[in-house]
Nucleic acid binder design. Structure first.
Lengths: 140, 140
DNA sequence: TTTTAAATTTGTAGTTATTATAAAATTGTA
DNA sequence: TACAATTTTATAATAACTACAAATTTAAAA
């Protein structure tokens, strides 16, 4: 079986022991750029990894968020979603199909500040909501 | 008993019949600028309005959001919060005390776009997270 | 290798925020 | 007053997530 050393190293760099389950979850997030929910991660991996439990998925995603391996997205009012791309970018969620898309930010430095009004900023989230291309097209 | 006509008119303008409960909820949101959760609204009004039900609070807040009377805030991963100020501004949530503060946005027009990548934008949310003044002070 | 300890995973059972539903109460109107 | 429409309410259900403790796996020591 092949092992992706870059993923292993990614976890080790964040102080996380790379178990089978953790690698599988990271692997899924790396190839899937749909900003999945915990449930979606579980459903995607469960067939190939039948022993995997939903609890492990939640625990692992929480651990990854704490260690900075990924970002929590709060754009969806129903579920937390996860983004393995920790670079500075925004998100758009279609209010019809619920899909989440990456959006580039024009002047990042103006947006990603260190502090405001004496408060120390550790996270910046920019979300847009509306109607995606596909849904706009289908309505016509 | 006094009646605040401006609040009545606000609801009528949004096509909402101003019932006792609806006025009470709107009144609370108008004076309370803490971006409360549905539960907080209920707990605040329940003593003075013992017949009020949590369901009504949820229904009313949902109605207000649909009609544009208020905005949903997704900054708190646990609950949806509500903001009666529909003007264009950002929010900061302290990850320690969980309080939510209003933040002014510098160049609004650059942020609040009509569309991106062919997608039609109807809402823009800018959230910051970190440590508020009070919590920073207490740590020292 | 065997033993032991530590870490991880798992299933189950909770908790909590929110929604669905239908009966009861209220309001507006003929 | 009678009737219909709307609103509110209580209850029950749902769904996302967490707590917990047992079982398993991994790592380290003997």
């Amino acid at each position: 079986m092949e092992v992706d050393f870059s993923m292993q190293e990614c976890l080790l760099r964040h102080g996380i022991k790379p178990s089978l389950q953790r690698m599988a979850i990271l692997g899924y997030l790396s190839v899937t750029r749909t900003h999945p929910t915990a449930d979606e991660v579980y459903n995607a991996l469960h067939p190939a990894l039948p022993t995997l439990s939903l609890t492990t998925v939640y625990n692992t995603l929480k651990l990854y968020a704490e260690r900075g391996v990924l970002l929590l997205l709060l754009v969806d009012e129903k579920n937390v979603r996860f983004d393995i791309d920790t670079g500075r970018h925004a998100h758009f969620q279609c209010i019809e199909c619920k899909n989440v898309y990456d959006i580039q930010i024009e002047n990042r430095d103006a947006l990603y500040k260190k502090e405001v009004d004496g408060m120390k900023i550790t996270e910046t989230h920019l979300y847009y909501k509306g109607h995606c291309k596909a849904c706009l097209f289908n309505e016509k």
